[in-house]
Computed example of a mutant assay.
Amino acid sequence: MNQKFKNSKIQKFKNSKIQKFKNLIKLSSILLATLIFSLFGCVSGTRIISHSFGFDFLKDSPDSELLDYRYGTSRVTGTFLSVYGRETGRIEQRNYVGGSIVVGDFLYVKWRNKKTGEIYEDTADLKDKLPHDMEHKIVTFLIKESQLYVYVVTQELHSKGEPDNGPDVYKHFKVVTIYPKTKKN
């Protein structure tokens, strides 16, 4: 009986050591995979940062109808026109997505002027225009007549006396126009 008890204790000890070794292998694999993906992102120039992308054509661009858009190369739903929208022509005129997404290096927008029926499209090159620290910032855009305007919204409140910039919903925040290029930016 003592021998059986001793053998079972030895077996439990061996099993726990084997399990710990397996867990160590799993953890090492996860860490290695994370390192590889991080290095791949650095090498490819891709930055995945917690920030947001959104627009509201109904409020901010009431004289325009959005026909198509794409924020960079992200595959996150909401950063590009959905297949459903493309196939049915039912395109959301208001959208907002946030989280860990690829920082876009361009913004493509296609729209129709509701008054004239004229169709426009523009691609804003965002490379070297977005701040390096995009953490918790918002990329948004609107249309004024035939011009695309792209903005970065910060979490900072703008100074008293400083004019509002960008969409009305962000009028109390510091908003930087990054496209089109102006004397200020």
Rank of each mutant, 00 (worst) to 15 (best):
K160Y: 11
G117E: 11
Y151I: 00
A124I: 01
L32R: 12
V153I: 11
M1F: 02
L67H: 00
L107C: 04
Q147W: 02
S100Q: 11
G98C: 04
T88C: 08
I10G: 00
G98M: 10
K171P: 04
V175E: 01
K137L: 00
G104Y: 06
S159W: 08
E92K: 14
F141H: 13
T34A: 14
T46D: 02
K183S: 11
Y71W: 12
S82P: 05
A124Y: 08
V169M: 11
G72D: 00
K9S: 13
D128P: 00
Y179V: 05
R86F: 02
Q19P: 00
N23R: 14
K9Y: 05
Y71K: 01
K6W: 03
L66F: 05
V102L: 09
Y96L: 14
L31H: 11
Y71D: 02
T73V: 06
F21M: 08
R112C: 05
H132L: 12
I36T: 12
H136N: 13
D105I: 12
L126R: 08
E121W: 09
S159D: 15
W111E: 01
R90Y: 10
K22F: 07
V175A: 00
K59A: 09
F106A: 05
Y179T: 05
K144R: 10
F13M: 13
T123G: 08
Y120W: 14
P163D: 06
N95Q: 13
G54Q: 01
L126H: 08
N185P: 04
S50N: 14
Y120K: 09
N15A: 15
F13Q: 15
K12I: 07
Q11V: 01
L142W: 00
F37K: 03
T34K: 04
H136G: 02
K12C: 11
L32F: 12
V97T: 15
N23A: 09
K115I: 13
P163H: 02
T140N: 04
V43L: 15
I36H: 04
T177L: 10
V139D: 03
S52L: 05
Y151W: 01
N165E: 13
R70D: 05
K17I: 11
I143T: 00
L142F: 00
L126Q: 05
D133I: 04
E156T: 07
K160H: 12
E65F: 04
S16K: 15
E87K: 14
T116M: 12
E145N: 07
T116R: 09
I48A: 11
I119R: 11
L126S: 05
T123N: 10
I18D: 14
D168M: 12
